[in-house]
């Protein structure tokens, strides 16, 4: 494997100071991710560089940053896929920055909480099985893939000019629970979706769907949510299809029995 040098251009931020671009030459080999590159900088060049990271497999959502002008995950992006000369790294836009590549995501978490992102149902307790058909599952499954990395929020042009806009991630979460066949919370959730910093402010730039690393497609969720709200207004909104009736399964005959107990109970 041959290494080649790629320049990492990083937007540094220290509290109370002006931002500064800083450049680091990084020896890159095929298969190396942006996250690996940052790690190399930290270990060999500048231990003060700060960013979030954890799972390194694109599922924890920690390492969201703007890579060559596009929000994405550092762990998920291979350096040589995007450039063999230089790449630029910035903290997620539309968020305050704590330090270097560490954005303050609290505003997103707060907005997420405000749309009641949980199942609102009559019966929350109990251990009797519930039923849901694969079709009912598909109705919302895609929108539950969200890893809360903030890439969509950073890409959203409405959020850029209206910091109070709920944004793609919370709106998608609202739709995800609205469309769950086990949920009865539509009426409660629509209260928080009504004001003008909310869903009516999305004009389908679809940037969120373009940058989402997990295929969640927030733009799609938001348009469905709009349709549901309109249909609800004229009394035509339908609940997700009927709950399937389970059939008694056929017992399997290839399952062994547990061996007899060999310890005598006192």
């Amino acid at each position: 494997m041959t290494d080649q040098t790629v320049t990492f251009r990083v937007r540094r931020h220290q509290p109370g100071q002006e931002d500064a671009w800083q450049e680091y030459p990084v020896a890159v080999h095929p298969g190396m991710t942006v996250l690996d590159g940052l790690q190399q900088i930290k270990e060999q060049q500048d231990s003060s560089l700060a960013w979030r990271h954890s799972c390194r497999m694109g599922i924890c959502g920690s390492c969201g940053m703007v890579i060559n002008g596009q929000p994405g995950l550092a762990c998920n992006t291979q350096v040589l896929d995007i450039s063999d000369r230089r790449i630029s790294l910035e903290p997620l836009s539309n968020f305050p920055v704590a330090r270097d590549l560490v954005p303050d995501l609290e505003p997103m978490f707060d907005k997420h909480r405000s749309i009641k992102p949980f199942l609102i149902a009559g019966q929350q307790d109990g251990d009797e099985p519930l039923r849901q058909s694969p079709r009912q599952l598909t109705d919302y499954l895609q929108f539950s893939y969200c890893i809360k990395c903030g890439a969509c929020m950073a890409a959203c042009p409405t959020l850029a000019s209206d910091a109070d806009f709920l944004g793609p991630m919370p709106l998608t979460a609202a739709h995800r629970y609205n469309r769950d066949s086990r949920d009865d919370g539509f009426d409660q959730r629509k209260q928080s979706l009504g004001d003008h910093h909310s869903i009516s402010h999305c004009h389908y730039a679809a940037e969120c769907s373009k940058v989402c690393p997990k295929g969640v497609d927030p733009a799609k969720a938001i348009q469905y949510l709009k349709r549901d709200l309109v249909l609800d207004l004229v009394g035509l909104r339908r609940r997700p299809g009927p709950v399937p009736q389970g059939s008694p399964g056929t017992p399997r005959d290839d399952i062994p029995k547990a061996p007899e107990f060999t310890v005598k109970k006192p």
């Binding site: 058909s133 399937p244 389970g246």
Partner: peptide, 9 residues
């Protein structure tokens, strides 16, 4: 979102 069988289990 548990995965489901056709009859909803």
């Amino acid at each position: 979102p548990w995965s489901r069988t056709e009859d909803g289990h």
